[in-house]
Structures are given as structure tokens and as C-alpha cells.
Design a protein around this nucleic acid. Structure first.
Length: 196
DNA sequence: CCGCCGATCTTT
DNA sequence: AAGATCGGCGGG
């Protein structure tokens, strides 16, 4: 087991198109539960019609316009939470959506948090499943991943990827649907969804 | 495995 | 009225 090293602020303070692929293989940690990130999507603020921040700041999206390295957690479809990592400079509203992971530790707690999952592959494959599995909800909006002020952080354990990342268009969008801003580790059982 | 549909509520 | 989703159901 290699030592886990929390990602520094400088990791996040770059263009989301650079940060997103670099997040593959990193560890999302909360409350004894750890998953290895295997699927992400980049969202590029005012330059991206698919971003919640495309039309400028609102109460919902204000965290995205703040400093990098914080969580942007939003509520969708009346019942689900999804988590993004804020990237780039202040005011740019870059973000990377965490779409899927592979459980690394705390499997019992993850299973307990996902009672609807029939198979293990359904535990953390999907942005809302991932949040439910790790116990991340709206109270974590704005949480600092570098300071881990609410117990959530991202770390690297130095493990090299065994699969080359692949790209595709993003899942579930009608605006910006043609942009190839999704990265994933192909063949991984936890990778979710399909582009349209 | 795949496709369809309903749930449920915030945002526009 | 649509949405950065999920889970249950039916069919192949």
C-alpha cells in the first residue's frame, strides 16, 4: 500500500481540460470510504454551453466562481446530488464532474449507503451513486478539498494507470453535447452511462 | 443486455 | 418545462 498524498491547491488551479484527465486514478476520500476515480467530465464555465455557469453566477453556482480545490455539489432531478471539483482561476467557473469510481476502502460502509445497489458494480458508477456511496450531499457544497475542512479530500497514492484513458462526448447533455470533454478508463466495470 | 418510464423538485 | 440521474420493469 503506497502512501496517500493529498492533492495540492496548484493541482486544481489549472484549466479543467487539463485537470480532468489528471484526476483519473486519484482517490476520493470521505469518512473511511475511498474510491479510485475512473470517469470524469470537464465543464468550462462561460465558454461551455453545457456548464451550469454558462450564463453567469447564480446562488446555485457561486462556488464554481470561487477558488479552485473546492467542491461544487448540486441537486438534480428532484432527488440526486452530484459533485464537481472547482478548477482554474477565481471567476472562471471551471469544474470537473466526478462521474464514477472504484471502491478501494470502506466497502461495508459504501454498501450500507447504497441499499438499492443490486450488484457491486452499481455501488459507485454514476455521479449521484458516487455521492450517495460516500455520503456527500448539499452540506458539502463549497467544502475545501485541500484543507479537508469537511472531511472530504482527493489524494494520489502514486499508482500508475494500468489502462490508457479514453475520451468521449459528455453524458446526458443537450447543450455542448458535441464537445469531447469526458475521460474514463475503458473496460472498467464502474464506468457509467453512454454518450448520445 | 437493452430500452422505456416514473419519481421528485430546483432552476429557468 | 427541462434537467450534468437512477432504478424498476419488460422484452430479446
Amino acid at each position: 500500500m503506497a502512501r496517500r498524498r493529498r492533492l495540492p491547491r496548484s493541482f486544481y488551479a489549472r484549466d479543467p481540460l487539463e485537470v480532468a484527465p489528471d484526476l483519473l486514478g486519484t482517490l476520493l476520500v470521505h469518512d473511511g470510504r475511498v474510491v479510485r476515480i475512473v470517469e470524469v467530465e470537464a465543464y468550462c464555465g462561460a465558454d461551455d454551453p453545457g456548464s451550469h455557469a454558462y450564463r453567469g453566477p447564480t446562488p446555485r453556482t457561486e462556488v464554481m466562481f470561487g477558488p479552485a480545490g473546492h467542491l461544487y455539489v448540486y441537486f438534480t432531478y428532484g432527488m440526486h446530488w452530484c459533485a464537481n471539483v472547482v478548477c482554474g482561476g477565481v471567476g472562471e467557473a471551471g469544474a470537473v464532474l466526478l462521474r464514477a469510481g472504484a471502491p478501494v476502502a470502506g466497502l461495508d460502509a459504501i454498501r450500507a449507503a447504497r441499499p438499492k445497489a443490486r450488484r457491486d458494480r452499481d455501488l459507485t458508477s454514476g455521479p449521484a451513486r458516487l455521492c450517495q456511496a460516500l455520503g456527500i450531499d448539499g452540506t458539502y457544497d463549497g467544502a475545501d478539498l485541500v484543507k479537508a475542512d469537511r472531511g472530504v479530500s482527493l489524494a494520489s497514492d502514486g499508482t500508475a494507470l494500468t489502462t490508457e484513458p479514453a475520451t468521449s462526448t459528455r453524458i446526458g447533455l443537450s447543450q455542448g453535447a458535441d464537445l469531447p470533454w469526458r475521460w474514463y478508463l475503458p473496460g472498467h466495470p464502474d464506468v457509467s452511462g453512454r454518450p448520445r
